[in-house]
Simulated assay, not measured.
Amino acid sequence: MKILVTGTAGFIGFFVAQQLAQKGFDIVGVDNINTYYDTALKHGRLKASGIDVVSLQDNVPVSSSLYPNYRFIKLDIADRTQTEQLFAEYRFDVVCHLAAQAGVRYSITNPHDYALSNLSGFLNILEGCRSIQVKHLVYASSSSVYGLNSNTPFSVHQGAAHPVSLYAASKKSNEMMAHSYSHLYNIPTTGLRFFTVYGPWGRPDMAYFKFADAIIKGEPIDVYNNGEMQRDFTYVDDIVEGVLRVLDRPAKPDPDWDSQHPDPATSSAPYRLYNIGNSSPVKLMNFITALENAIGKKAVINMLPMQAGDVLSTDADVSDLERDLNYHPSTDVQTGIDRFVAWFKEFYQV
């Protein structure tokens, strides 16, 4: 089976591509390796996958030295022509779309980047899937779509019509765009709402990454809303396992779907939404304590008011994931943080 994984120089895509390659699938990974954060980290992920980053040229496949069935192409999905050519040449069976412009706060200062990557780029992926009638499109959504909804735990069967950042709005738009293609062209699509993913090889713009760096250096960390926040932190291995299970289960029409009482998570079309979270929210201050324990050093904390675009709490209802895929994320925060800090110290040689 030939699988396209987008965003394979990114955090989650890096792990997903490796796992699929290890299982023997024919993998094509793409990423534009933009400068949203340090490209040395993106190159480090590619090197860990056996990709010679020195030889990278736009639109030229580079084979992995570790996985003969894995090829990487430096390509921007927002480029319509390049993306059309990619699908025409490789004719994928399944697409795992993880590439996106990430970051809630960055979307406030750089909104056009989100329209380009998360809207135009996603449309190009959908059109590629339509052109070759892929068997399943799995794509990354986000817990941020729940926005002003305070009815926790968050369920995919609740409405999510009040996002509080453009990033969240772009992810909600992806879900609606996917549904229209499932309805019009009978393409099975599954959206995965990820809840605060963390772990080794993570993103430097995430709070836990910044906290670790500052604590190690003895510098203060900014903690918003005076620490009165909690997140459903989800370890990356749990996310990847969920993605792999979903890839193997194409969405189907819900035979019980009622247009008079529409369920947001299913449809008369082959369309599905799932939460992937640990379903055990952790108070932010407890998360910082886990970092302190792993690093062996106390944090210097600078308390600040709530930031625009943030939400007070996230909590995933993963009952659908458990029922349909017999899976529940299980890595506890201290274990996950210990692994992250060990990787951080090794990678940055601190």
Rank of each mutant, 00 (worst) to 15 (best):
Q18W: 01
S313T: 15
N151A: 15
G121Q: 00
G24M: 06
G147I: 05
H162R: 14
Q349P: 04
S143P: 03
R323L: 12
D205C: 03
S141D: 07
C129R: 02
P188L: 05
Q82H: 12
I77N: 02
S319Q: 13
Y274A: 08
Q85Y: 08
R339C: 12
D26P: 05
T8D: 05
D238P: 10
I33W: 07
Q260S: 13
H136M: 01
P111L: 10
V16I: 01
V60L: 13
F25T: 00
D213V: 06
A316V: 01
P253M: 01
E241H: 02
Q82C: 09
H112N: 14
V246G: 00
P111D: 12
F72C: 03
V282N: 13
L184H: 15
N293M: 12
F209V: 09
I216P: 10
S319R: 15
P264I: 06
H179I: 03
A9H: 06
Q101V: 08
F87H: 04
V236R: 08
V164I: 04
A88C: 09
G29Q: 02
V104W: 01
S313A: 15
G218S: 08
G191W: 09
A88I: 03
A160L: 09
L98C: 11
R105T: 11
T314H: 10
M177F: 04
R249N: 15
N151F: 11
T39R: 14
R91S: 06
I33Q: 11
I288K: 07
Y90C: 02
I301G: 06
G50W: 00
Y36G: 05
V156L: 10
G218H: 13
A140S: 14
A299E: 07
A17N: 09
S65Q: 13
S170W: 02
A316Y: 01
F195Q: 08
H157K: 14
R203L: 07
P200V: 03
V30N: 02
D79N: 15
P111N: 11
P253T: 01
P264H: 10
L166M: 12
V62A: 13
R249K: 13
T39A: 11
D76W: 12
A212Y: 01
K298F: 09
Y185R: 00
V54P: 06
L304D: 06
N293W: 08
P220L: 13
I301C: 07
T189Y: 04
G199M: 05
A178H: 04
Y67D: 00
K297R: 15
Y274I: 06
D310T: 14
P188Q: 07
L192A: 08
T266Y: 07
N302Q: 14
V300S: 15
Y274D: 08
Y181G: 00
S64F: 03
N124K: 08
V223W: 03
A294C: 10
P68Y: 00
S170K: 02
I216F: 12
S49F: 00
V138L: 03
A214I: 13
R323Y: 12
H112I: 13
Q101N: 11
D93M: 02
T331M: 14
Y271I: 01
H157V: 11
F14E: 03
F233T: 04
D205A: 04
S150Q: 15
S117K: 02
T189H: 05
P200E: 07
D79T: 10
G121R: 00
K74E: 13
N226M: 11
A294K: 05
V28D: 01
N151I: 13
V16Y: 00
G50Y: 00
